[in-house]
Amino acid sequence: MNLNYLFSFTVVVALAMIAWAGIDVWGLNGLFCIAVPYVAAILFIIGFAKKVLGWADSYVPFRIPTTCGQEKSLPWIKQNKIDNPSTTTGVVMRMFFEIVLFRSLFRNTKAKFKDNYRLSYRWEIFLWVAALAFHYAFAVVVLRHLRFFFEPVPQFVQLLEKADSFFRFEFFAPFFKIGLPGVYLSGFVLLGALLFLLGRRIFLGQVRYVSLASDYFPLFLIIGIAASGILMRYFAKVDVIAIKEFAMGLASLHPKVPEGVGAIFYVHLFLVSVLVAYFPYSKLMHAGGIFLSPTRNLANNNREKRHINPWNYSVKTHTYEEYEEEFREKMIEAGIPVEKEQ
């Protein structure tokens, strides 16, 4: 099982080396800068669509929400409309909290007891915090990258950049300079959250035991992406103008190999391409799947509104007639009413 993270780590390092060698040694610029990103994007779209449509192809025969609060019942009993929704609005609310705030994961902290209360619940909230930090930081980082694809840069991206760089960190020493260009908090939050999630997987026996290589791989991959991004923004600076020109070229289907950009950019680009291509074929599809989870996206109004199962088929049952046939005598003897007296 330790093979799992060793393997994933090695693969990610190898991928980085391949990108570097591909550009610096073999000079396959066209392949790595143009073919790979396009192929990755196509794989993403096809894979994503296939996966989601595959799910859509399966039926939802029953309405099986996991109810996490009081149901809609008598009018004087207060219903928990979010955790046990009986209307579409309620379901939308529940899904919103689930997707936007990871409500179920947060639930872990709810129980607190004074006596004997110790560590275990604390790391649970850390899982929630780290998960939330990771996802939001990642979203901000992705959205910030839109500046490379739009000219002029959209207002909301500028606002996001402004907010992200609101806190100024400036540190200036011979071997470590950071602060110009302005520090984006999201990148560091992303990296920190990733390291926490990775550490959790490696050091918590339980989680390590259930983790597969495919759990470590995306972590290492995104760590690689975040680290290379941070390196090239603050430490080994690259020609941003050339990169934007390249990105716009990709987006307008007039790709052009960028010139004079540091090798670390190619590593970054290649790792991102791998992530994008890998996404639909992995557990990362939880991003799409969460919308389709039948225990969350259905209202608990089963007794109020009939749910139709399209493949419902008739089955052989033991009818009353068969039953009475077998026990008629005993029923009559016991004075239980029967359909046919003889």
Binding site: A111, F113, N116, R118, L119, S120, L204, G205, Q206, Y209
Partner: peptide, 21 residues
């Protein structure tokens, strides 16, 4: 089992981790 041992070592809430308590 090893992973159970580490879980037990986390102690925690006596209701969430009764064996450890």
């Amino acid at each position: 089992a090893k992973q159970t041992a580490s879980f037990l070592n986390q102690k925690g809430d006596r209701f969430a981790n009764p064996v450890s308590a």
